Amino acid sequence: MIILNKKINVKKLIILSFFLTSIHQQAQIFKRTSINAAYRYTGRNVIQGGLEYRLPKSFSNFIVGASVLYTSINDKAKFIPEFNFYASNLGLLGVSVNPYSIEPRFGFSFLNTIMINTGYAIPIHNEKYFKGITFGVQLNFPLTKNSEFYHNYSVIK
C-alpha cells in the first residue's frame, strides 16, 4: 500500500512540475494562435472552423492548423477533421489533408487576417466527396490582444 501511494505522489509531482513549467510556453502559444472561420468550395459547399498557429522566430512564415469541415452529404450533416500547412508571406503555398482528399493550395494573404486560396482536391478515399478545383476564403481572429499571428509591417509616418 505504501509503495502504491509513493507512485501516485511521484506522478502528481511530475504532472504538477510539467504544468508549472509550461505556463510561460502556453502564453506564447496563445499569442501565435488564431481562430479561423472559412467558406470553401471543394466540389461541394463547405464551412470550416478551427485553429491556426504561426511557428516561432526562424520559421515565422509557416503556419500549421487543424480544423473541422462541415458539409452536407446525402442530406446528412458531416463533420470532417482536417490538417493544413502553409508557407505564408504575402502569398500562400500549402497543403491540406483530410480523410477524403489531399489538397495542394496557393493564394494570397492580407496580413494573415484574410486568406484567399485555390487548389485542387485529390481524392484518397473510395467516397470522392472532395474532388477537383477548389476555392476558399478564410478569416483569422487572434486569441490575444497583442497577437503575434499577424504579419508585422512598419508604417512610415
Rank of each mutant, 00 (worst) to 15 (best):
N140T: 04
A87Q: 09
G91V: 03
V137H: 05
N45S: 15
I133P: 03
G43T: 02
Y70R: 14
L92D: 06
I102K: 08
K131G: 02
S109I: 01
I124W: 06
K78F: 11
N45A: 11
F85N: 08
L20A: 09
R40K: 12
F62W: 10
I3S: 13
F83E: 08
G107T: 00
Y100T: 05
I122S: 02
L69K: 14
P142L: 07
T113A: 07
P81W: 00
E52Q: 13
E82Q: 15
L20R: 12
K76T: 10
I73G: 05
G94A: 07
T42Y: 03
E103Y: 01
G119M: 01
V10W: 04
T71P: 03
G107C: 00
P123G: 13
K12M: 08
F85H: 05
G43F: 01
K57L: 06
I63Y: 06
F106T: 10
G91Q: 04
F85M: 14
P142G: 10
A37Q: 08
I8H: 06
S17T: 11
P56W: 06
A38R: 02
I156R: 13
F18M: 10
Y129L: 15
F141Y: 12
L55M: 14
F79H: 13
R105H: 03
E103V: 07
P123I: 03
Y120T: 01
K57G: 04
S60P: 00
N112E: 13
D75L: 05
F62S: 09
R44I: 07
K31P: 00
N152D: 07
F141W: 06
K12T: 04
V155E: 12
N61K: 12
I14K: 15
F30M: 10
G132H: 03
V46C: 03
V155Q: 14
I102N: 11
F19S: 13
R40H: 10
L69D: 15
S72W: 02
I2A: 13
K7C: 02
N89S: 13
Q28P: 00
N152Q: 09
I15N: 14
